[in-house]
Structure formats: structure tokens, C-alpha cells
Amino acid sequence: MIHAAAKIQAAGGVRTLAFDASAPLQLANGEHVAPLTVAFETYGALNTDRTNAVLVCHALTTDQFVASPNPITGRPAWWPRIVGPGRPIDTNRFIVICANVLGGSMGTTGPATLGPDHQPNGLRFPPITIADMVRAQSMLIEALGIESLFLVIGAGMGGMQALNWVSAYPKRAFACVTVAAAARQSATNIAISELGRQAVMADPDWRGGGYTAHGVRPSKGLAVARMAAQVASLSEQGVRSRIEDARQRERFKFDADVGTHGAIFVERFDANSYLYLSRAMDGFDLGADFGGRLANAFQGGSTRHAVFSFSSDWRFPPADGRTVARALIAAGADTSFVEIDSEKGHDAYLHEEPEFEATLTGFIDSAASARGLSLQGGGA
């Protein structure tokens, strides 16, 4: 049942849950957001006991359309190998919920949202954290009448959200999967993000964050930020190969076509959202609020965990995954750590990786059995 303060709406292919001013979102910095709108998608059906819900937390540059095409951009689903009928997260068995994060640019309240003066918030939007994103998701889940999630899963920024979920709500997620993520943003990632933000802000069309009012977009700056992030998502060998290709083609042109959807990204993603979300990632340090000891962030929980890393990922290397796994074990959590041998870098989780898919399926099936859920589609 939807909370009295919330109302489901749909427009232009985007479904949202709008909370009125009587249900404000309290932010970590003491400010609040009201009214709040959360854009989301669901796949599959909720069982009678409401115990089969899976929350997928998306990464920095993706959105809520995890298993279906984006109706606004036409962009295909971003995780079809993992979410869908017969996939590791089987929508014949589970209801999958994926929400555009707070501050996002695909329907959830953020910098592009209109303020009281009917102009985009821009930089008037308050700073946000990963914890704020999670609180907004929690409001959505509660409004949908789901008390406890079967699984929360995410990669990259989504993995940060998943870890924050089980720390903030230790009794509300039966299982958690963290993929290619960390409990604290590394200095390398912060540096890459800051270079991207500076590129956006150096674009003359950024206009101090007020580009919409001038009818322009800081497309060149955002394209540079996107390229920096995508280069960092390649493996070391992938970077070297592209450098060599660039040397042979044109001296200083490093494959400007990194990511075939680069131009589409600039059109679909709000530049200010990129600033806000990347800064939220850079500020993420889950252990900082627990005396600097990460294990303390997971005390008292009963969630089952699987932590995945990829051997060639230098954005979130296996050492980051091991740090998370050790902290979970120290907190007494049922934890598995799996390093997948891959040459695809950080984005390996988006591509065909049979070992990852098989191991993820095994973890989900084991957790489902322990939860009392059917291992076959259509059951409960």
C-alpha cells in the first residue's frame, strides 16, 4: 500500500513516486528535500509474503532502466545479462526494483528539478551523500509496502549504496551483493572525478551551473568528464592498446569514441547531476562514522554477503573488495569474497563473464533457499 504522503505518477515513460511536503527527506547535512520525487522501475511480481524483493542500486552513469530500454533515450537496458527472465536475478522469481538515485537526471529530484520559482534548482540543490540516496530509496521501498528486501545489489556507486543499505538498515536486507566497489573512495578515483568536474565547470556553456536558463549545455566539458571515467574503467591493457591505436592513427587523439554511447550520454545526462553524484562518491567513507573501523559499520546485522572484484579493475581493485570482506567477517557476517579473473577492467560486470554470472546465481539460489523462496519461476 502506498503511503498517504506519496502518489505514483507516470509521464513520458518515466514512473515516479512523489512524496508531498509532509514527508521530507532528511539529508546528512541537516537540510531536507521536500517535496521529493523518486523515479523507479519494477520487473516481476511481489509474492504473497512480500519476501522476494530485490533492490538494484545503479552506478554513476546509469539509471533505473536496468532490464528494459530507456523510453526517453532509446538506450538499451544496462544489465540484461543479470536481470530478467531466467537470468541470475530472475524476474520470474523476484520483483526487481531499481530507482534513479537522488540527484539523478532521469526523473528523481535533483539539480535539474524545478524549484519554487519554476526554474531548475541547479547549484541551489543541497549537497548530497550516498547515505542520502539510500534514505530516499528506503522511503520508496516503505511506500511500496515492502518491509524487508531479499537482496540489495549494486556495482561501483551502486555497490557503495548496497553497503550503506546494510549498515543503515541491518535488519532490512536478507542478502547483499557488492560488485566492483569499495567502502571508501580511493585517492585515484577522487582525482579522476575532480578532473571531470573541472572540465564541466571550465566549459563556457556551464554558466555557473545555470546553463538551462541560457538554453545551452556544457556538452564539451561533460564529454571530457565522461571520457575520463570510461578510460579509467578499462583494464591496463585496454588503455595501452588504445594509446597504441591512437599513436598509429593520429598522434594525440586517444580514441575519442571510448564508449559508443558517448554522444548519447552527453544528451541524456544532466551536467550538474554529474557534479553532485561524483562528489557524493568522493565523500563516501563508510567506516568514518564508526570510529574509523569499517567492521563497526556492520555490527548487529544478519545479512548474507557476497563481494565480487575483477582482477583487471584498477578503479576498484580486488584489494578494495578484500577490505570490505574482511570487515564483514570481523563483524560476524556470513561473507564470501570472489575475485573474477577478467581482462575487461571495471566494466567487466556489464559484459559476458560466465564465472561471475554462475557464482552470482549460486549465491542468490543459496540465499533464496535459506529465505524459503522457490528456486523455480512463479513460486513463492
Rank of each mutant, 00 (worst) to 15 (best):
G283M: 10
L275T: 08
V231T: 13
P116S: 11
T323Q: 14
H351F: 13
R315P: 00
L46I: 14
A358Q: 13
P318E: 13
D282S: 04
I153R: 02
K220E: 12
D117Y: 03
L294V: 04
S312R: 07
G13V: 10
N52E: 10
L140K: 04
T61E: 02
E31D: 13
L17Y: 05
E194C: 11
A325Y: 04
G86K: 07
N189A: 10
I153G: 06
G103C: 13
D63K: 03
G238D: 09
A187I: 13
R87D: 09
Q161D: 02
A380S: 14
A39C: 11
A327K: 06
P85C: 01
A232L: 04
I243Q: 13
V224N: 10
P85E: 10
I264F: 00
A232F: 02
G259C: 03
V324F: 02
G345E: 10
V134E: 08
A271I: 14
G262Q: 08
A306S: 09
M227P: 00
V83L: 13
V179P: 01
R184G: 05
D203A: 09
Y211V: 07
Y274K: 07
D205C: 05
L195A: 14
F356D: 13
Y169R: 08
Y43M: 10
R371M: 08
M227Y: 03
N92W: 01
V200F: 01
L27G: 02
S167P: 03
F290H: 15
A333I: 01
V33S: 00
H32G: 09
A367N: 03
M227D: 09
S105T: 12
I153S: 09
G259S: 06
A77M: 07
L277N: 11
K253M: 04
A191M: 09
V338F: 08
W206H: 09
A39M: 04
R293W: 01
T61G: 03
T113V: 12
G291T: 03
C57A: 06
E41T: 15
T359G: 01
A136G: 06
D203C: 12
D20E: 05
T361V: 00
A280T: 11
P88R: 03
A21Y: 01
G321Y: 02
V239M: 12
M139F: 02
R240G: 00
G86A: 09
E236Q: 14
L25E: 06
A271P: 15
Y274E: 07
F284M: 10
